[in-house]
Design a protein around this nucleic acid. Structure first.
Lengths: 336, 336
DNA sequence: TTGAAAGCGGTACCAT
DNA sequence: ATGGTACCGCTTTCAA
């Protein structure tokens, strides 16, 4: 049904080689010929079969985005924004985006298959746990590859400055006079979770506040779990007077637990989140949080990846993007 | 770098034809030969070049998902859930998913290019406005195509029963004694917006409540806009005693406006949303809403599309999925 | 500046 | 049951 390059060549009374040259902007085509060919191309609404082109060029113009199994990541706001950024850069560079959910828990590594099948020119992996990464065998191969939200020295990575982000979140609470500061962290098998936890502890240490295990809750970056974790934290005596929650979605869960207990934010408990999702200003009270440039993380990852594909970059790069404390109304001074 | 079928053939001491047969599960291969070939395949970690295969089979095993420009749809929860469903069905059927944002506003139709380039076997278009759809010229072509969230008689469509959903949302408010019921609708150029509006009006009509233009606010399915629209609605005298908001995200915006005015939900104003996103139980108060099966919409669309690709289905089908009223705490009886 | 033809890596038809 | 090979549609080298 669709036309081929042969038909275009025939109608334009030139060879397929010439048509191909026109299509690929080769300078060695006479202006008149080019014009004629383009006319026919338009008339026939011809567009080249990408698979044939990919086969002969050994290039696909497709970037694979690999994400963890769905229930976890898809529903998170972080993913949306990253996806927006990825999509933005992908299409601006005339690539296509293949979305892959890795069910294999990265064991058999769908990623490698993707490359071996020549399906993509490069891959971006989002939020892969460090242990899973080790299992992939990806390290020995040298595919164009960029990791998002994971910090692994031997790979190209793009991630937010989690340590400083968590540090300033916690310090903000300390500056407000809080001493009994809880944390609801995400899972610890990814660098996001680990680093935010580290930032929290660092802030305590710097300010001579004792780190207490009982004040540490572990969530999974989702609201439901954070709700439960916060409930547990509210059994503590004395209560924490502030809590740093490792992402905004969990903050919404934690807020609910606090409300149900009849406590108020920030009068009874101050709260700082992480991400600055666009709902952060719509919760009650508007959430003080750490803004991380989610869109840019996606965008930069793609730009970086394309540079690697085009061999404009060869050495492994760790790109760290800044975070910023956004003060709203969920934090207040500690009053005894 | 990657192996080809030739190398496998050579090592296995058979022809490429035989290797191909093994790979495609042809029954005309002796068990012993098959075993030998598979051994080599495994040893060489061979996997076929998808582009070569696609070229000769004239089939890509890729489904294209086309969505409106990013800021609008990506940030909506509706999209996330639909995407989860799409991805679920796509990968269960061993297809791949190509994600496309249509910047052309569907004018030059990226969709047609996708087909002409033989990049995909079929396409799912999410939330395409009816007027944009008309411009695509898609109607004359007969590609495997399924529309999500759009109701267009000449196309295969999968969508929620918006009319009945909006109807029962509104009737629920009426049953509670409300008469002055506002609506914050989405945009009206898609069938979602139109049909929810229709359901709202139908409920009023059936209950002999006069339809009033002043009670109608038009949002864009996002929280920010709904916040503004609700603010305007709160200038009305007398105030509406209830409001039906056409999706949950907008409900969060409307809630904020109501809070800021110092009014309470549901004591002063009752509210019903639409979607039942997973944050609906985490807002304050937990939101009464209309649940629509977002995941299933995505899943069913893909299953439908694959049936069309496989020619198991030829006639145009309109698949309507049920909605359900979920009563939580944002609605209460009207008391004068 | 243009054309002919050899691949790219598979599939599938035709022989045997 | 297996092998030989034309072909899918395009790019690119080599010649002219």
């Amino acid at each position: 049904m669709a036309n081929t390059i042969k038909e275009v060549a025939k109608k334009a009374k030139v060879s397929v080689a010439t048509v191909s040259r026109v299509l690929n902007n080769s300078p060695l085509v006479k202006a008149g010929t080019r014009k004629e060919v383009l006319k026919i191309v338009k008339k026939l609404k011809y567009s080249p079969n990408v698979f044939a082109r990919g086969l002969s060029k050994n290039k696909t113009e497709i970037i694979g985005l690999v994400v963890p199994p769905s229930p976890f990541l898809f529903s998170a706001y972080f993913f949306n924004e990253v996806l927006r950024g990825v999509e933005f850069a992908v299409s601006r560079n005339n690539y296509k985006l293949l979305l892959n959910v890795d069910k294999s828990s990265f064991e058999k590594s769908e990623v490698i298959t993707l490359f071996d099948q020549r399906q993509v020119d490069g891959v971006i992996i989002v939020a892969i746990p460090l242990d899973a990464l080790a299992k992939t065998g990806l390290e020995e191969r040298k595919f164009p590859l960029v990791l998002i939200g994971t910090h692994a020295p031997k790979f190209n990575c793009v991630y937010a400055d989690n340590i400083n982000g968590a540090f300033s979140a916690t310090r903000h609470l300390i500056d407000l006079g809080h001493r009994r500061i809880a944390i609801i962290n995400g899972v610890m098998n990814g660098s996001d979770g680990q680093e935010r936890f580290e930032g929290y502890k660092k802030a305590l240490l710097r300010n001579n506040i004792e780190y207490r295990q009982e004040l540490v809750g572990v969530g999974n970056f989702r609201q439901e779990e954070a709700y439960k974790v916060m409930k547990d934290l509210l059994h503590l005596k004395p209560l924490p007077t502030a809590v740093f929650v490792a992402n905004d979605l969990m903050a919404m869960g934690a807020m609910k637990a606090i409300r149900e207990k009849g406590l108020r934010i920030p009068e009874d408990i101050s709260m700082v989140g992480f991400d600055d999702i666009d709902l952060a200003t719509f919760v009650d009270p508007p959430l003080t949080t750490i803004r991380q440039p989610m869109f840019d993380i996606g965008r930069v990852a793609v730009e970086n990846l394309i540079a690697i594909i085009d061999k404009k970059q060869s050495k492994v790069a760790q790109i760290v993007l800044k975070t910023k404390l956004i003060i709203r109304e969920s934090t207040a001074g500690y009053k005894k």
